[in-house]
Amino acid sequence: MQNADGLARRRLVAGLLGLGLCMAGSALAQAKCEKPLYLTFDTGHMGVAPLVADVLKRQDVRVTFFVAAERTLTDGDSLDNQWAPWWKARAAEGHEFASHTYDHAYWRGDVRGIEPQFRIRPSAGAFAGREFTWSAAKYCENIAKASDRIAHVTGKKPLPLFRAPGGKTSPKLLAAAQACGYAHVGWAPAGFLGDELPSETFPNDKLLAQALDKIRPGDILLAHLGIWSRKDPWAPTVLEPLIVGLKAKGFCFETLRRHPAYSAWIAAHP
Results as ranks from 00 to 15, higher is better:
119 R>Q: 11
156 K>N: 14
116 P>C: 10
100 H>Y: 05
115 E>A: 14
77 D>L: 03
119 R>L: 13
83 W>G: 02
118 F>I: 06
91 A>H: 03
118 F>Q: 02
85 P>A: 06
101 T>A: 11
127 F>M: 10
69 A>G: 07
142 N>W: 07
127 F>W: 11
95 H>S: 02
84 A>N: 01
139 Y>P: 02
156 K>S: 15
156 K>G: 05
155 G>Y: 08
129 G>S: 15
92 A>L: 14
111 V>L: 11
114 I>A: 12
111 V>C: 06
104 H>A: 09
110 D>T: 13
101 T>E: 10
64 T>W: 11
66 F>E: 02
164 A>D: 02
125 G>F: 12
125 G>H: 12
137 A>E: 15
75 D>P: 00
74 T>N: 15
70 E>C: 06
87 W>P: 00
122 P>G: 10
108 R>V: 14
94 G>L: 01
114 I>R: 06
141 E>G: 11
143 I>P: 01
105 A>D: 09
158 P>Q: 08
143 I>M: 06
114 I>D: 12
129 G>C: 12
152 H>T: 12
124 A>K: 05
116 P>G: 11
151 A>W: 13
116 P>Q: 11
68 A>S: 15
86 W>C: 00
131 E>W: 06
105 A>S: 14
162 F>L: 09
132 F>H: 08
98 A>L: 05
153 V>W: 00
77 D>G: 09
142 N>Y: 05
100 H>T: 04
126 A>S: 12
120 I>T: 07
134 W>K: 04
141 E>R: 12
111 V>R: 08
163 R>G: 04
76 G>N: 11
66 F>I: 05
104 H>K: 10
91 A>R: 01
160 P>V: 12
131 E>S: 13
122 P>R: 03
